[in-house]
Design a protein around this nucleic acid. Structure first.
Lengths: 253, 253
DNA sequence: CGCAGATTTGAGATCTGTCAAGGGATGTGG
DNA sequence: CCACATCCCTTGACAGATCTCAAATCTGCG
């Protein structure tokens, strides 16, 4: 099995044993592709598949009857789509490809089987799940308590760092394949205001537009404008007590 | 072991076997109390305990150096605090008691042990975790794409329904133990504007104030003002394929 | 009573949204 | 190669929502 961004994220844990990798790779046998703009998951539709993104971007969104749309999270290589799919009979969100996508796909129930067999894998994938949850936390904080430019700069820095962690090269991580409307729906603002905020960032030299793509030019500058604190994304290893706990029970202090 | 709100939530699944309940109760042996205003979890501090709320309210928040604060989620009876604590060495958020609290507390690593022993329990608690994630999704959508009054009405209805699912009686579920400043920090607005929005809801008879508590008076009315769609909270049972999958492997169609 | 914290209100400043229109790039068909 | 359509970006003007500041009122409590 080739090394996917998910592999790279999990490798940094230095925690899984060969048998765990084998079980993981057992899940990643079937591939799926999608075209730009394709809907991978439909809102309010049954879901029973889990996907791992190997290449390309997608977004997870909710839409209103009156046309409003909120993008909840951007899904990057190494992210899991429908981790909890087996626990729910309907999807409360949609997922749409922002670029052509390469993914693995498997029945969500297989995940449960794999995790019951391999506690370390369970821990490792829960670690991924916990990261997604922290990213949602930060999205809430960003939208709730930051103004438009801060919000945008903050998102840019987050995306850059997430891409790096998935093993995407720095120069590739600086190109965001999204329109300003997508940006607006992610940040909870109008596309007109998103444009004004973006212009403000590009005037400073933090970002620019090239071939219809957003280019991040000065991450440090963006981080400063966003008052960025990276701690919610940092995690190089599982804490020691955890590592022990998978082998043997730990006494309660 | 007495029947806690968590028990009641899990019971509705009609899915756990006696042995699972035993393992769960094994986790819930040690109790912890907290006073109103007490900090249960400190921001940027080590965490290695998981808590189950049995009684009372708390909130999970992030704060900025300049004093801004965003409440990410309100934690109610039956909710789990620090489900992923074992996977991270530091907490990215704080948790503060909004009322006196009764909780169970145990080392986060014990959760892993319990879940490795009991796949059905793993599934059941993941189901709880997936609900929290959907609630975060909705919080993002609420803050990102709803105006102030819609936001507030929407939160009120969500809280009412969450409390009901945790087995809290309807009349008790209509009393929210939070100030308008807490409400404002939850909804990402200023406390002044929160007050104006609240007044607008109370003028219509949807809510009112009594003894410093927010009283929900007409849930249907609030739901209408919020254009509330309850699907993200609904889930009476696990889908059939899942139930099967825990016993035996399921063929991939 | 008097304090501390919570709610309420007004006024003005600021931010953000809406509407409307123009410009630029890209792709398609003639 | 041009005409045209489409999608995206950009801008201005104005309306509306929300924030900030400041002060008044209210409430529970010692």
């Amino acid at each position: 099995m080739r090394k996917t961004p998910l592999h790279r994220r999990l490798e940094t844990l230095q925690f899984l044993e060969p048998s765990d990798w084998t079980i993981l790779d057992g899940l990643l046998t079937r591939e799926e592709q999608a075209n730009e703009g394709e809907l991978i998951v439909l809102e309010n539709q049954e879901i029973n598949r889990t996907r791992i993104i190997h290449n390309g971007w997608a977004h997870r969104y909710k839409s209103f009857q009156d046309g409003r749309r909120q993008i909840i999270n951007l899904m990057l290589p190494g992210d899991i789509v429908g981790f909890y799919a087996v626990m729910r009979n309907r999807s409360d969100y949609g997922v749409e490809a922002l670029t052509p996508l390469e993914m693995s796909i498997f029945p969500a129930a297989d995940l449960i089987d794999a995790l019951s067999q391999a506690p370390r894998l369970m821990l490792a994938l829960s670690w991924i799940a916990s990261q997604s949850e922290r990213i949602l936390d930060e999205q809430i904080t960003r939208i709730g308590r930051r103004n438009a430019t801060e919000r945008m700069a903050h998102l840019f820095v987050e995306l850059f760092l997430r891409l790096r962690k998935a093993g995407i090269e720095e120069n590739e991580a600086c190109v965001l394949p999204m329109t300003q409307s997508v940006l607006a729906d992610t940040l909870g603002m109008s596309h007109v205001h998103a444009n004004r905020s973006f212009k403000s960032l590009s005037r400073d030299g933090g970002a620019s537009l090239a071939q219809g793509k957003i280019l991040l030019k000065d991450i440090d500058l963006l981080a400063m404008r966003a008052k960025f604190d990276a701690s919610y994304l940092e995690q190089t290893s599982l804490p020691k007590p955890t590592l022990k706990a998978v082998q043997e029970n730990e006494p309660f202090d």
